[in-house]
């Protein structure tokens, strides 16, 4: 009986703690309708002896979705929003949870993330980090955890896959323009025909 009560108490503590952390981190993040910057991505696949390194630029738009433009080594474009995912090969079937999550991560929408993930984290003076574990059964089979870290901006994303593969993305040169460039607008138009 006592044990149970204690457990309940701990659990509720933990919950309120997590909620607090989320709120604090959300408060720290600069939130604007548009965020853009550059990325460096490192993928370590178990079957490959060297990492796949790529760099490029990203654009987050609260109302439109995300443009992920890889510039090296192979230029390519990926467009994603809540409902669609477009690549050079056309429309792709991917759980929309993934599109949503991707957008929510880049937009710092932690509340949205907590719909699809169990979130634990810490908020230190210099930086914060959050660990996300998927709730969706299908996503669980692929992703074991995602760690987000940053300060007033999201600076890093580490994804650990169930099969041992790792994806590490770091974000630099983040800015918050007021408007999309016409090129960005054209890209987004392809997403919502």
């Amino acid at each position: 009986m006592i044990l149970k009560a204690l457990l309940l108490f701990l659990l509720s503590c933990n919950l309120s703690y997590a909620a607090d952390v989320l709120a604090d981190i959300t408060a720290r993040l600069i939130k604007t309708p548009i965020t853009q910057g550059e990325f460096q991505q490192e993928k370590r696949l178990k079957i490959l002896r060297k990492p796949l390194l790529s760099t490029g630029a990203f654009t987050y738009s609260q109302s439109n979705g995300v443009i992920w433009k890889t510039l090296t080594p192979i230029p390519s474009l990926l467009l994603v929003n809540d409902a669609h995912l477009l690549t050079g090969q056309g429309e792709q079937a991917v759980p929309p949870a993934f599109g949503k999550v991707f957008k929510a991560m880049l937009g710092g929408d932690l509340k949205q993330l907590s719909d699809g993930f169990v979130i634990t984290g810490e908020n230190k003076k210099s930086a914060w980090s959050l660990q996300l574990t998927p709730k969706d059964e299908m996503l669980k089979k692929i992703i074991s955890s995602i760690v987000l870290s940053g300060d007033t901006e999201l600076r890093g994303l580490d994804m650990q896959e169930v099969n041992g593969n790792i994806t590490r993305i770091s974000f630099t040169k983040i800015t918050h323009p007021d408007q999309l460039t016409s090129e960005q607008q054209t890209d987004f138009e392809r997403l919502s025909p």
Partner: peptide, 15 residues
Amino acid sequence: SQNLEILYSPMAQML
């Protein structure tokens, strides 16, 4: 080169 595009994309684990 299409394969490389897929592999370098952040969604590679799905595709």
